[in-house]
Design a protein around this nucleic acid. Structure first.
Length: 409
RNA sequence: CUGGGUAUGGCGCAGUUGGUAGCGCGCAGCGUUCGGGACGCUGAGGCCGUCAGUUCGAGUCUGAUUACCCAGACCA
C-alpha cells in the first residue's frame, strides 16, 4: 500500500475529546474515526486489524466445529417478549424504533433469542445435535455512558457463538473445548499471558459464568487473584460462599483492574425453554435443548491490545494482527527506486511511505502506526548492499542484504 | 441518571473592561533542504455549537437547548 494513495492522514495533536489512550492513538494514526460518543468508524487500517483479529478467532472456532452465519440486526419484539427481555425495565440498553408500517423493532444487543428461534426450523431430532453456530456481528447497546474509547461503545463488533446439546454432559464437554479455544485465541492475539479465566456471576441456571479478563490499569472491572493466579474472580462474586467454593482465603488475594475480553455461559434451558427449542431423543420423547453461549468483543479486544502494547511513540501491534508487517522507507534516489520495486512485488506486505517528506517524519509515522518492522533502504545501507530492519517492539536494528530480506518474505 | 468541565478554520489553542476574530500544526504555490517531526516567502480556509434575549454594537453579558469529555452509578 502506498501511503500517498491513502485518504487517511496522521495527526500530530491528540484530539481534545478523547482521553483514552486507545482512541487517542487510533485516531491520530488514522485507524478509526469518531462519529459520536461511543460510535466509531473503522478506516482502512483499522478494518484490517479487525479482520485479522476475526480471522484468528474464526480459525480457532472452526477447529471446534463452529459454523459461521450472519444474523440480522433488526429484531422482532415478539421473540424477546417470550423471554421477558423486551421490557425496558428488564433490559435497559435497547435501541428501539418504529416501523413506518406500524409496530416496533429493536436493534439487537445480543442474539440468543433469534438464533434459538431460528433453530426451531432446523432441529427436530437428537441426530441434529450438537450444533455450534457463531457470527461476527454488530451489536447495539444504549449505554448510559460510553467511555474508554473503543472499549465501551454503543455500537460494537462482537463474535457470538452459541452451542446446542442433547445433554448437560455434552454441554459441559463442549464448554471445555471452548475454554481451550479461547486460551489459544488470546495467545494468538498476543495478550494470552495477561488474560485469565475469571469467575463471575452465573445467573439463574448456573452458579458461575466465566469471564476472560486481561489485567489492565485502565480496565473497567476489578478482579481478585491469588499468588500464582490460578484463581481469579470478579469482585461482583467476592463473597464467603464463593471463596469457600474456590478454596481460597480472602487474605491471600490481591486485586487489580482488568478489562473483560470474553464471557462464556452455560445457559442450559434459559432460552430454549421459553422459546420452545426441543428435540426428540432416541426413545421418541420430547426434550428441551441445552445451550451455551460464548462471546468475544472483537472491537474491544482491539482496544485492549492497543492499551497493552502502546508506548510513548504510538501504537505497537503484535505481528499477528498488524495491518501490514513492514513499513518501507526509501531514502535518496537509489534507495527510493529499490524500495518502490520491493513494494510493487508484494503490496500487501508493505506500507510504502512514498510521500515527499523528510525521513524524520516518516520514522515518526512508522512508530505512530505501530507497524512491526521498519525497512529503510538508503545510500547508507546500500553502501554495504544492505537494507535496515528495525523492530517496533524492541527497537533493535538489523542489516540484511536485499536477497536475504526478500527470502524472508 | 447524579456531580464537575468544555464547545472559536481539518487538529490543538488564544481572544484582555462588549467595538463584528488571531496563533501553532496541517493544507496550496515557489525556492532552499533531505537518516529523526527543517526553513524562507506567498496564499486559501472560520457568520465563534444552536436558538432566543440585552445592546447602537455580542466570540465576550443573560436565558434556554444540544453535543462532547471526566468521576460515579449502571453494565450477559
Amino acid at each position: 500500500m502506498k501511503l500517498s494513495h491513502s485518504f487517511v492522514k496522521t495527526l500530530r495533536n491528540s484530539p481534545k475529546d478523547e482521553s483514552s489512550r486507545n482512541a487517542d492513538l487510533l485516531i491520530r494514526a488514522g485507524y478509526i474515526h469518531k462519529e459520536m460518543a461511543g460510535v466509531y468508524d473503522y478506516l482502512p487500517l483499522g478494518l484490517k486489524v479487525l479482520e485479522n483479529i476475526k480471522n484468528i478467532i474464526r480459525t480457532e472456532l472452526n477447529k471446534i466445529g463452529g459454523e459461521e452465519l450472519l444474523m440480522s440486526s433488526l429484531q422482532n419484539p415478539e421473540l424477546w417478549k417470550k423471554t421477558d427481555r423486551w421490557d425496558d425495565q428488564k433490559v435497559d440498553i435497547w435501541f428501539k424504533t418504529e416501523l413506518n408500517a406500524g409496530g416496533e423493532v429493536g436493534l439487537a444487543p445480543t442474539h440468543e433469542e433469534p438464533l434459538t428461534n431460528l433453530l426451531k426450523d432446523y432441529v427436530s431430532s437428537y441426530k441434529d445435535l450438537p450444533l455450534a453456530i457463531y457470527q461476527f456481528q454488530t451489536k447495539f447497546r444504549n449505554e448510559l455512558r460510553a467511555k474508554s474509547g473503543i472499549m465501551r461503545t454503543r455500537e460494537f463488533l462482537m463474535k457470538d457463538l452459541y452451542s446446542f446439546h442433547t445433554s448437560e454432559e455434552d454441554l459441559d464437554a463442549y464448554y471445555s473445548k471452548v475454554e481451550t479455544a479461547y486460551k489459544n485465541i488470546y495467545d494468538l492475539l498476543g495478550i494470552g499471558d495477561e488474560t485469565y479465566e475469571t469467575f463471575a456471576s452465573g445467573g439463574v441456571f448456573s452458579k458461575y459464568s466465566h469471564e476472560y479478563q486481561t489485567f489492565l490499569p485502565v480496565g473497567e472491572d476489578t478482579v481478585f487473584y491469588n499468588q500464582d493466579r490460578s484463581v481469579v474472580l470478579n469482585d461482583e462474586v467476592l463473597n464467603d460462599e464463593v471463596l469457600n467454593d474456590l478454596n481460597v482465603k480472602r487474605e491471600e488475594l490481591s486485586s487489580t483492574r482488568a478489562a473483560e475480553v470474553g464471557n462464556i455461559f452455560k445457559l442450559k434451558f434459559k432460552y430454549s425453554e421459553p422459546l420452545g427449542l426441543k428435540f426428540i431423543d432416541n426413545e421418541n420423547s420430547q426434550k428441551t435443548v441445552y445451550m451455551g453461549c460464548y462471546g468475544i468483543g472483537v472491537s474491544r479486544v482491539m482496544g485492549v491490545i492497543v492499551e497493552k502494547f502502546a508506548d510513548d511513540k504510538g501504537l505497537v501491534w503484535p505481528e499477528n494482527i498488524a495491518p501490514y508487517k513492514y513499513y518501507l522507507i526509501g531514502i535518496g534516489e537509489e534507495g527510493t527506486k529499490i524500495a518502490e520495486n520491493l513494494h510493487n512485488q508484494n503490496p500487501n506486505l508493505f506500507i510504502y511511505d512514498d510521500r515527499n517528506l523528510r525521513p524524520g517524519e516518516k520514522f515518526a509515522d512508522s512508530e505512530l502506526l505501530g507497524i512491526p518492522y521498519r525497512i529503510v533502504i538508503s545510500d547508507k545501507t546500500l553502501a554495504e548492499n544492505k537494507v535496515e530492519i528495525t523492530s517496533r517492539l524492541t527497537g533493535k536494528k538489523e542489516l540484511l542484504t536485499l536477497e536475504e530480506f526478500t527470502a524472508k518474505l
